[in-house]
Every structure is written in C-alpha cells, then in structure tokens.
C-alpha cells in the first residue's frame, strides 16, 4: 500500500513538472497569427505564398503559428481582434482588403505588433510590406511580346482596383518595349470579391480572348487563375501565372510566373519580430531585393530560349540600375490627370 502511494506521488510530481514545463515552453514560444484573404491558403497564388512563408518560419524558427481565412470581408476585423486579445505576439494581415481592419485593431492594441501585405499603414506597431508589382509585370510583358508573333496579348485581372491596374500598366509598358504595335486586351472578372474565386467566369474570359487571336494572357486574379490555365491548356495557348510560382500547374502552357515573394516578406518579418528586432515602417520589395522576379524552372525552361532569357536579364538589370523607369499606376494616379 505504501509503495503504491509513493508511486502515485511520484507520478503526481512527474505530471506537475510536465504541466509546468509545457507552460513554460508555451510562454516562451513566439506566437504568430496569420489572417489570410478570401482566396484561402490553397489559392496556389497570393495566399499560398504567404502561408508558405509562415509555415517555413514555423518549421525553422519553432514559432507557434495559427492561421485563419477570412470567409468574408466583414469577418476580417474580428479575426484580427481575436488574435490581438489572445497572447499573440505578431499578427499578419494578407491583402489590400485588410488595411482598414489592421489600422483599427493596431490602434486598439498598441502593445501588439502587426504586419500588413499590400497596404500601407503609418503606425508605431505596424510594418507595411509593399511590392513593386509593376517591375515584374514589365518583365513578363516583355516576354509575352517576344512569344507573340501577332502582337495580340491579353491581361485578365480579378477586380478593377488600383493594385491590379498596377500590374496591367507595368505589363503594357513591358509589351510596348518589345513590340510597339502590340495590342493588349484587358478584362476584369468581376466587381465584387467573388472575382477572386470565380474560375468558371475567368475561363470564359480567357476563351473569348484566345478565340479573338490573343496568344499570351497574364492573369492576376487569385484563385480564379485556374480557369485561365484550363483555357490555355484546351486552346494550346500560353498563360502567365502570378504571385506564387505557378509553372507546375499546367506544364508547357504557363510561359512563366511573375513572382511576388510574399513568402520571403512574411518569413523575414516573423524572424525579425521573434529576434526582437521588429521595426515598424514600410518595406518595399522589388527586382533589386528579389522580392519580385519571374520564374524559370523545369516546367517552362523549354518555352524560353537562351536569347529571350538574356534579353530579359538585360531589361532586369536596366530596371534595377534605374535606366528603365517602369510606369507606376499608384504614382500616375496621385498626380492630377489632364
């Protein structure tokens, strides 16, 4: 009986120690809350890139990661608030739709750190991560023009918003650099946030463009992009992916992908914050910092000749050195037109 008692006591002590230990571990772990946009972590594009960066941080840095997907725009603020109320150290909002929510919650929780991708917020506890989308769009535009003998080229965006216009304007400048007489057809999928998630409509738009003679389509439309890739496969034409490297989705039909390395931006932000170096302010990622790039891998290397590749690299250098100034829709728009 006595022996049993000591055994139980021993067990009890052991469990107490275990519980205590686990609490210490939990308290020491850096906790990150990631609020993804409506496209969700499997959009194979923008949100997938953010999720990739965060899971990389989870694996390599041993942080605690919790992610949520905003089922609709109205939910975003609540998602941020619930992360902020709990003991999360860093909360990251992905996408332009979250700017207002992050601004508001960051003000209400001044002791927490926040980061926002694709939006700029001036606050002491918010880091804004912006990308120079026009630079990468310029390069893929130039490549599209090289691959299109007829000069008929297409662009399909999700919603008609300044961010997507920024892609389109850079793309057109790149096309015109190679082929001055090229004709660009621009379409948008919808007028509400459903546009990021309507592959059926996206496919119809792409088929309509391909049928009218368009040879290459650049798509910036989140999860709707899969519809354009399906159309390219069926019509044996080319498409250009966006944000993540999407070359693998339809090998041979995706000319390249304009990379927006949201994964690097998210990973670096988490790493800095965990190491205690969180810095508010705006970080801009462009060709120079490799935050923006175009993808060449085993799935598309046959589509791009050595000559085209070297031409692209030359353009890239000229953009980095400032010799070529890519038009920026944001700046164009801040100036009064006419």
């Amino acid at each position: 009986m006595k022996a049993l008692n000591t055994l139980q006591k021993g067990h009890l002590r052991f469990f107490c120690a275990l519980i205590l230990l686990s609490q210490i571990v939990q308290a020491e772990n850096f906790r990150v809350g990631l609020v993804l946009d409506k496209g969700g972590k499997d959009d194979k594009s923008f949100n997938s890139a953010a999720y990739l960066g965060a899971t990389k941080a989870q694996k390599e840095l041993g942080i605690d990661l919790k992610y949520v997907e905003a089922s609709d725009t109205n939910a975003i603020e609540n998602l941020h608030r619930s992360f902020a109320k709990k003991d999360f150290n860093l909360i990251i909002g992905i996408g332009f739709a979250q700017v207002d929510a992050v601004k508001k919650i960051a003000e209400q929780f001044p002791t927490k750190n926040f980061a926002i991708v694709d939006g700029e917020i001036n606050a002491k506890n918010v880091k804004s991560l912006l990308f120079e989308e026009q630079e990468g769009s310029y390069l893929v535009g130039a490549l599209a023009a090289m691959k299109s003998p007829s000069g008929k080229i297409g662009f399909i965006g999700g919603m008609d918003i300044p961010l997507i216009r920024r892609f389109a304007v850079g793309y057109e400048a790149g096309i015109k650099k190679i082929k001055l007489d090229a004709k660009l057809t621009t379409n948008f999928i919808g007028v509400s946030s459903e546009a990021w998630n309507n592959p059926a409509k996206a496919k119809e738009l792409a088929l309509s463009q391909y049928n009218s003679g368009v040879e290459v389509i650049f798509v910036a439309a989140g999860a709707s992009g899969s519809g354009i890739f399906d159309a390219a496969e069926e019509k044996k034409k080319l498409a250009i992916g966006v944000d993540s490297n999407q070359n693998w989705i339809k090998p041979g039909f995706i000319l390249t992908s304009m990379l927006k390395r949201v994964d690097i931006a998210v990973y670096d932000t988490i790493k800095e914050a965990r190491d205690g170096h969180f810095a508010a302010g705006t970080n801009r990622f462009g060709l120079k910092s490799k935050g923006i790039d175009y993808a060449v891998d085993q799935y598309n290397e046959k589509l791009i000749s050595a000559e085209q590749k070297s031409q692209l690299e030359k353009l890239k250098e000229q953009i980095i050195s400032g010799k070529i100034v890519v038009p920026d829709y944001y700046k164009q728009n801040s100036k009064p037109t006419k």
């Binding site: 409506k38 969700g40 592959p199 059926a200 899969s226 399906d230």
Partner: peptide, 17 residues
C-alpha cells in the same frame, strides 16, 4: 457541371450566386 466542366476543381463559393 461547374466543377467538372466550366472549371477544373472545386473552390470555395465557386457558384458565385
């Protein structure tokens, strides 16, 4: 016919009204 014909997978809310 949406997920097998007009598109090539299911994605959330793909009926879009």
């Amino acid at each position: 016919s949406l997920s097998l014909f007009l598109a090539s997978s299911y994605s959330p809310n793909m009926t879009a009204g």
